[in-house]
Amino acid sequence: MTLTYKQLLEIKDLTVDFDRFGGKARVLNRVNLAVAKGEKVGVVGETGCGKSVTMKAVMNLLPTRRVTVGGSIFYKGRDLLTLDRFARRQITGKEVVMIFQDPMTSLNPVFTIGQQMEDIIGYNLAGAKRGLRLPKRLRQEAREQAARFLAAVKLADPERILNSYPFQLSGGMRQRVLIALALANQPDLIIADEPGTALDVTTQAQILELMDQLVQERGIALLMITHNLGVVRETTDRVYVMYAGTVVETAATDALFAEPLHPYTKGLLDSVPKLHGQGLSAGIEGSVPDYLQMNPGCRFYPRCPQALPKCEFEPPEPRSISENHMVSCHLIG
């Protein structure tokens, strides 16, 4: 990937180690990832592949004890990892916001939606003077803005929603409120963690369509992390496939789904039950390896159906196949 300011977010050689009982676990190994302005990027992988750790590193949500972070995370050309926490807080949570998976637990159950939205919007309006009570005028303005954002996420009757507590809303409505809260910061980048996974398919489809439309309209970049390949295909422009803390393949979404190259990507795509119903594939042998006993070479080696002898000891370097398509595999190139 070339060095330009064109990339809104650029993660370079991000490495994260967790100190665990029995040794150091390298849960992210030299992850490279970029999101351009207004681009919709997906990160897909199964449980424990490191996609959530990557996002937490960006959002500064990793625990500070017993965790070592290496590499850099550039946002608009500035390395977030070198900023102090005040400077960082000006970016993450404001310019870069996250929408969490569970719409129930990410809203505070004892405050109304209105109170929660006014706090956030008011905080921005008041120029981030924390701890001060909002003047009445600002609170009024914040409430009006909140209603506008709720209308933007197609919630009928914003006034009623503002006066509701989270438990009075359905799962889909809560998810919409979270999106409205994210929009309220007027971010440049939204990170969405498994959006709609906790919801039913018909509701999920509505939410995905809504998000798609909103980021398009406002030129917001979207980084979506999910295990659902179908969701990624239908909502993103470019996609990264992660396995055991490494990016194994990245390409334009259509290209990746049309012609997956890495054996893991192939196996993953094969495993998804298809609508034409020609039976299920065999899946991938074995399970995600223990991070404390990771294969020194390619991390997929123990489960790979096409492994070469050198895969056991030699980690594959990412190789460019075409302009956007990169694969880390000894079989390719």
């Binding site: 398919v201 018909t202 999920q204 489809a205 969701v231 239908e234 789904f257 298809k274 609508l275 034409h276």
Partner: peptide, 15 residues
Amino acid sequence: LLASIPVVSVEEEAL
């Protein structure tokens, strides 16, 4: 329900 399923290929899209 069928229309809402996220699918992984163009062939399925047609179905």
